[in-house]
Design a protein around this nucleic acid. Structure first.
Lengths: 105, 105
DNA sequence: TCGACATGCAACCTTAGAGTTGCATTAACT
DNA sequence: AGTTAATGCAACTCTAAGGTTGCATGTCGA
């Protein structure tokens, strides 16, 4: 699995429209044109967003005849979540250690 | 705990400089001025970033005399991670369901 | 009280990105 | 082959965000 850098993934997840796209894809794989029918933005705008999502591995393109359907990669979301969880835990550990020191234990 | 919207948190985490700040704060609480001494950006730029991080609950201000130190809230990172994990799991469940249907099970 | 250091506020610059329109291209289907 | 519907590419607009400089305000300490 492409464990690329984490920050761009968060940047990709930091946009409401992209979450709308992900939500729409949750109903089933769909093409940029199909998504444009359901969302209040242009097909080209959606195409750009899909490119961003694909870039960070959150989505996968699948050619079906003359169209390109996209599928959400839940595993990537899970992987990102686990890495974030690890970082959060690390901070808690540090805070606990600092607290002990502060309390003279 | 302020379980505000998720997207702004990701947007906040989607910037390299802010991660630098979080990393620096990992060494211990620090003020904007102190951070400016360690990072290649202005104090004011850091102040803006800290405002953003505080806005989404990733950081907490603590007045210490005439200065304002900031502390990372690891719990917020953990909370965000769990919510993302849940979403990822949900997607995996959907994909599994779709696969079953596709295979005629 | 006065100087030094820290924060707060405001105006400004510059670029990245979200969105648009328009056109070219490719590929399915009759 | 020709039509239709999809994608791909390019240029353009506009706003928000990251960053800067400058100055005002506030507060600790000698």
């Amino acid at each position: 699995m492409t464990t690329g850098t984490l920050v761009p993934v968060f940047a990709a997840l930091g946009d409401e429209t992209r979450w709308s796209i992900l939500a729409a894809l949750g109903e089933g794989d769909a093409s940029a044109s199909a998504l444009a029918g359901r969302l209040p933005v242009t097909r080209q705008a959606i195409a750009k967003h899909l490119a961003v999502l694909q870039e960070v591995g959150l989505v996968e393109p699948i050619r079906v005849g003359r169209e390109v359907r996209y599928r959400v990669l839940g595993s990537r979301l899970g992987e990102t979540a686990r890495r974030l969880e690890a970082i959060g835990a690390e901070w808690d550990r540090r805070l606990a250690a600092i607290k002990e020191i502060a309390e003279g234990l």
